[in-house]
């Protein structure tokens, strides 16, 4: 019991959990479909043409 009382979750773990939460929201909002649409076309700006 003492172990659980004294141990504090490390900051990186909070960061990971926040990341998973935000990723979930992003997936639900369809943000990765937006990224995919951009990524599968040749990005004219990226190659210095657009």
């Amino acid at each position: 019991m003492g172990f659980w009382k004294n141990s504090k979750p490390p900051a990186w773990l909070w960061g990971v959990l926040t990341g998973i939460l935000f990723l979930g929201i992003g997936i639900l909002q369809g943000q990765f479909a937006v990224i995919w649409k951009k990524a599968v076309m040749i990005c004219m700006e990226c190659i210095g043409i657009g």
């Binding site: 960061g15 990971v16 926040t18 990341g19 998973i20 939460l21 935000f22 990723l23 979930g24 929201i25 992003g26 997936i27 909002q29 943000q31 990765f32 990224i35």
Partner: peptide
């Protein structure tokens, strides 16, 4: 949010 999550 998607990219913020990725960076976190």
């Amino acid at each position: 949010f998607g990219m913020l999550g990725f960076f976190f």
